Simulated assay, not measured.
Amino acid sequence: MAKRIKAPPAKRPEAVLPGFISPQLATLKTKPPSGAPWIHEIKYDGYRVQLHIDGDTRKAFTRNGHNWVERFSAIAGAFNIPGQAIVDGEVVVIHEERTNFSELQADLGRGDQDRLIYFAFDLLWLDGQDLRKMSQLARKGLLKELIDGNNLKEPIFYSEHHEGDGQELFEAASRLNYEGIVSKRVDAPYRSDRVEAWHKIKTVQREKFPENLRV
């Protein structure tokens, strides 16, 4: 009697990476919050960019959903990880020890990517899993593991945060002539909207550049 040959186990379909995800936007405030529910980050003066990594495929979406991967190819290529990820962050140029939007625009106008830096501050998707319902701190923890675990180096940087009193970081940002800070609730999910879970506090209370380019 012929042996019965078992059928191979069904192969699980690979997760399809979502397309562009409308970003979460911060609400402008005049002073930072304080207390345990909040963390605080430096507000970078650059272009909001959502990196999509899917094997060897890279995309780099602007805040309005335009794929600028050719303009940011150096950054997209430097985010060298296996598998899939969608990362939220900011592309900047450092000039005179601070991020400078005018210098960034000038470099992009020349097609010069040598000074471009990417500060990654959120992780929305990882290897088939949608992370947007996870808390802010949990997402940042996974992002740090992703960057450190794959030994990513310049031009990729993890956006560090300060816990506790936001006023302390805000005053430091003011002294250094930075644009401001962003305060984030540690327990909040990621929502494609302008939310109260993210506060932006500017050291100068005016918008210097078009709002559709900002965090």
Rank of each mutant, 00 (worst) to 15 (best):
residue 53 I to P: 08
residue 64 N to Q: 12
residue 32 P to K: 05
residue 208 K to C: 04
residue 26 A to I: 04
residue 143 L to N: 01
residue 84 Q to A: 00
residue 209 F to V: 07
residue 47 Y to I: 03
residue 209 F to G: 00
residue 18 P to W: 08
residue 45 D to K: 01
residue 11 K to T: 03
residue 160 E to I: 08
residue 104 L to G: 01
residue 61 F to Y: 15
residue 181 I to A: 00
residue 75 I to N: 08
residue 47 Y to S: 03
residue 191 R to P: 00
residue 208 K to D: 15
residue 33 P to R: 05
residue 35 G to F: 07
residue 125 W to G: 02
residue 149 G to K: 03
residue 152 L to Y: 11
residue 131 L to Y: 12
residue 73 S to V: 02
residue 38 W to D: 00
residue 68 W to A: 05
residue 176 L to H: 10
residue 39 I to N: 02
residue 95 H to D: 11
residue 208 K to N: 11
residue 112 D to Q: 10
residue 100 N to E: 13
residue 175 R to I: 10
residue 105 Q to L: 15
residue 150 N to G: 04
residue 132 R to N: 09
residue 200 K to S: 09
residue 131 L to A: 12
residue 180 G to Q: 10
residue 53 I to M: 12
residue 36 A to D: 14
residue 156 I to N: 04
residue 95 H to I: 00
residue 87 V to M: 13
residue 141 G to W: 08
residue 38 W to H: 00
residue 201 I to H: 05
residue 40 H to P: 04
residue 68 W to H: 12
residue 163 E to R: 11
residue 116 L to E: 08
residue 5 I to C: 13
residue 194 R to L: 11
residue 201 I to D: 02
residue 63 R to L: 07
residue 192 S to P: 09
residue 73 S to Y: 00
residue 71 R to W: 07
residue 66 H to Y: 15
residue 105 Q to E: 15
residue 66 H to R: 14
residue 29 K to Q: 13
residue 139 R to A: 01
residue 210 P to G: 06
residue 79 F to A: 00
residue 173 A to C: 14
residue 168 E to T: 15
residue 186 V to A: 13
residue 184 K to E: 08
residue 158 Y to L: 09
residue 108 L to K: 06
residue 30 T to K: 15
residue 42 I to P: 01
residue 190 Y to R: 07
residue 178 Y to C: 13
residue 137 L to W: 06
residue 10 A to R: 14
residue 194 R to W: 11
residue 19 G to H: 03
residue 87 V to R: 06
residue 112 D to C: 04
residue 100 N to P: 11
residue 76 A to L: 11
residue 54 D to G: 04
residue 139 R to P: 03
residue 143 L to V: 00
residue 60 A to N: 07
residue 71 R to E: 10
residue 122 D to T: 05
residue 12 R to P: 05
residue 150 N to Y: 04
residue 62 T to K: 07
residue 117 I to Y: 06
residue 155 P to R: 06
residue 59 K to I: 03
residue 68 W to I: 00
residue 161 H to R: 03
residue 117 I to L: 14
residue 68 W to M: 12
residue 201 I to R: 03
residue 213 L to R: 08
residue 166 G to D: 08
residue 32 P to W: 09
residue 114 D to C: 09
residue 129 Q to I: 14
residue 145 E to W: 02
residue 16 V to T: 12
residue 172 A to C: 04
residue 77 G to N: 15
residue 65 G to F: 10
residue 31 K to P: 01
residue 102 S to C: 03
residue 174 S to Q: 14
residue 101 F to L: 07
residue 30 T to F: 08
residue 67 N to H: 09
residue 207 E to R: 11
residue 96 E to I: 02
residue 2 A to V: 12
residue 3 K to I: 07
residue 178 Y to K: 14
residue 178 Y to H: 15
residue 184 K to P: 07
residue 20 F to Y: 12
residue 58 R to V: 03
residue 119 F to Q: 05
residue 100 N to K: 10
residue 190 Y to S: 02
residue 99 T to M: 13
residue 165 D to A: 10
residue 92 V to I: 11
residue 60 A to P: 09
residue 19 G to L: 04
residue 77 G to I: 02
residue 101 F to R: 04
residue 12 R to T: 09
residue 17 L to Y: 06
residue 136 Q to V: 02
residue 72 F to H: 09
residue 52 H to E: 09
residue 37 P to S: 01
